[in-house]
Structure formats: C-alpha cells, structure tokens
Amino acid sequence: MAMGSRDIDAAVYEAVRAAARRGHRATVSEVASQVGAARSSVYRVSQKLGYKSWIEFTSSLVRYHAGEQGGDPVATSVKAVADALLRNRHLPILVDAVGDAEVCSMYLLLRLGECDFFPMPFTKHIAQARGGTAGSGVVIVINESGMSLLRTCLAAREQGFEVVSITSSHDTPVSKMSSINVVIKNNKSHIDSYEPNHFAAGALAFLERVLYRMGREAPFA
C-alpha cells in the first residue's frame, strides 16, 4: 500500500533525525532510497517544515543533536585545528590576520615557534616560495569580518595550503574557503558608544587551547 503524504513527511523526518543523531547529514538520495519515495517528495519535506533548503534542514538537526549529546563545540574545534597543525608539523605554517586580530598573528608566530613548528607571516610571495604542491602546509587566517583576507585564502588554496580560519560568522567568504572554520562571536559598536569586543581575546584563548592540546598529544621538544 502506497504511503500518504503525511506518512512520507513523517518517514523523511524520522530518517533525517536518525542520521543526525549519528552526526550524519542525510542526503536527499539516501532518504529517498530509505523511505521509498521520490527525491522531489523528500526534498519538499524540508520546505514544508519551514526550512529554506535541504541543507538548512539537515544541518539544523545535526547541530541540535550534537548539543543534545553534550558535544562541546570548543573542544571539537580545538581538536580539529590541533589535528590539522600536527598533520603539518614539519611543513610551513603561514599566519595572516587583520584589524584587532593582528595581535593573534604576532602571538601565534611567537608561540608556534616555541612549540617546534615552522611559523611564518603569510605573504603571497612566501606562499609561492613555500607552496606549489598539494599538501604544502597550513595557512591560518584570523579575520573578524571574514571578508578582508579572502585573497589570502585564494592564494593559499592555489598554492596547495590547507586553510584554517577564525571568523565571527560561518557565512563569510573566508569561512567558505576554509577546510576548518572556527567561529568566535564579536561585538561591533560605534566608537562613541563603544562596547567591549572580545573577538581577539577569544581567538587568543582558543589558540592557547589548541597549543595545549597539541602539547598533550605530541609533546614539544
């Protein structure tokens, strides 16, 4: 007996939720195959539920269930960045930052050097000299707006560097060009009614946790 529209909606939702609980974003094809419905019918469920797209639907459920499982987003991000740096321990780590975050760039160059890495400031010419092949190293980009350092990301990608970014939103060009993007909340205000902006402080705290984690996993010389 064929399923009714409401049955399909419920089955689709259940399939997406089950995948989300495993931390997996189900694709339209996967769910269509699982519930035995057309892909177009499956896709429409996301719109019926008020989401703009399938991606938004599945992403929301994955995030919701990540929280339900008590996942610590800071720890997850720290691990991701630490793993990326450790994978590239003997390769160049180039750092670029702008605005308030410039302090992070200088700080990271000092701290990574102390921790037996090969940090350098990012410039197009250094990237060209040190890159050129896949797996050239890592470029760390710290850019509150996620706009200003897009050129850095493009140049880094072109030269085969993995890009790790810290921005104040995940919906920015820099974020989307990054293989790992960490979001730290900012607080922009007018200079005459200035409110504390802890973006740079948050980025420094995050980076210190990354350094600590790396030191624990692979003790520095």
Partner: peptide
Amino acid sequence: RMGFRGYQEFSYSFRLSRDVQRGSLLP
C-alpha cells in the same frame, strides 16, 4: 581545485564551524 571533494562537501565545509560561545572560552 580548491580542495573540496565536490559541491556537497563545499556546502558542508562549515560543519566544524560552530559558534564558540564566549562564555565557555573566555576566562
């Protein structure tokens, strides 16, 4: 060429981008 396996991976590239809440990060 930008390092993603395909369009879907690009769309999901922010899966590790979580809102790192100030409350849990700042002392």
